[in-house]
Design a protein around this nucleic acid. Structure first.
Lengths: 212, 212
DNA sequence: AGACTCGTTGACTGACGAGTCAATCTGGCT
DNA sequence: AGCCAGATTGACTCGTCAGTCAACGAGTCT
């Protein structure tokens, strides 16, 4: 595509996309100007339109690029037969949480401007977003089949609860409502799975978790 | 305040606010014009500014009005000592789900444009939003104290998971990803509590849930 | 050197839409 | 009737900003 001609040259396209992440995360997609992105990238206004058709297309591309990586990850995790259902969900939670840990701005943009924007932008990507729910649902479904998970909670429903819990955690971090330390991120991976799979209540007859 | 003079007259302020709910829900806050709201209300453009300072103030008011009702409801539920923790959470989930059932447009606006809009608008109301998490956390906290809920999952954390699961369900309904029938709404109330309190996994030693 | 291509520039345009305001209406009161 | 206060109207202003475009630069090839 672009900038493939001179090898030494910086990939301006990538540069602009990265600047967009920073600006969208800081000011929000609606409250920033294209010129803010150009300034952040240290590039002329017009160059943005040399590489992208519109402001939306940038957001578009940021979302699709990252979301596909997540979809692939979920698919791979589901395929690992050696893992128990709870372990699979732990891997999924871990992947999403690590995504936020390593690229908080990008995840913030994706969640705030796309995933949670039911009107306007998110609608376009509803299908892609749903694929993630579907991937998680498959993990749950196979756990229901082998008797590990309860029958009376549908896989789709369970997937929503699980994903919703994780996204709420990310939101809480984004909002600075929960502490963001390395330990907290690690603890969260285990706890969110424990909360959803094992439940908040202590085991009925006082049995100390799974012993077999 | 306004229109209290002539008793027979329609409360135009309320009329405009209701129109705003419809328009914001349909087109999204950012993608609608103030004139759309005026048209929907069957009122002149200028009248909107007679009753409200700005477009944002309308959203502001819609959110605060409804959210306060929810905060009060959560407080009252928490105060009912005759209820077990799980029953309290069932009441909370029920209240939120019924809110959506009875006023889907309003809840859609609140969730999409305020609650889930970390940048821009939501930031202003972070404190109010957090109060809800705090209210749910208190229910969880008392359950931890009396030994019903696990010690190793903090109340704040648990509250996030619980609220996140519910909000994701509402989102799924808003997006038309899950069926919206009376039965589904009722089932969801029980299932979301079952998922979070009891967990997705079947009870360890095969004990058939809480029998007491 | 001259010509050609593609990256780069930033001033400019054109549309859009939030918010203003002077004029008009309505109904009550004296 | 004449006056007043508050409701109602909608044309207009004015700033903002997405997107355009003509010009410029920097390599490359002949």
């Amino acid at each position: 595509m672009a900038a493939s001609s001179r090898p030494g040259a910086v990939d301006k396209r990538r540069l602009i996309l990265d600047a967009a992440i920073t600006v969208f995360a800081r000011q929000g997609f609606h409250h920033c100007r294209v010129s803010d992105v150009a300034d952040e990238a240290g590039v002329a206004y017009g160059l943005v339109y040399h590489y992208f058709d519109s402001k939306e297309q940038m957001l578009n591309e940021l979302f699709l690029e990252r979301w596909q990586i997540m979809l692939d990850a979920i698919g791979e995790i589901d395929a690992r037969d050696e893992l128990a259902p709870r372990e699979k969900l732990h891997e999924v939670a871990g992947f999403i949480i690590d995504s936020y840990r390593h690229e908080p701005d990008l995840m913030k943009v994706i969640i705030v401007e796309v995933t949670r924007a039911a009107n306007s932008f998110g609608r376009l990507h509803l299908e892609k977003i749903s694929e993630a729910y579907g991937g998680i649902a498959e993990i749950v479904e196979s756990a229901r089949r082998d008797g590990t998970f309860k029958q009376d909670i549908s896989a789709q429903f369970a997937a929503m609860c699980f994903y919703g819990a994780i996204e709420q955690l990310l939101s809480a971090w984004i909002f600075d409502l929960l502490p963001q330390t390395e330990e907290e991120f690690e603890r969260a991976k285990t706890l969110v799975v424990e909360a959803i799979c094992g439940g908040l209540e202590v085991s009925p007859s006082g049995a100390p978790a799974v012993s077999g």
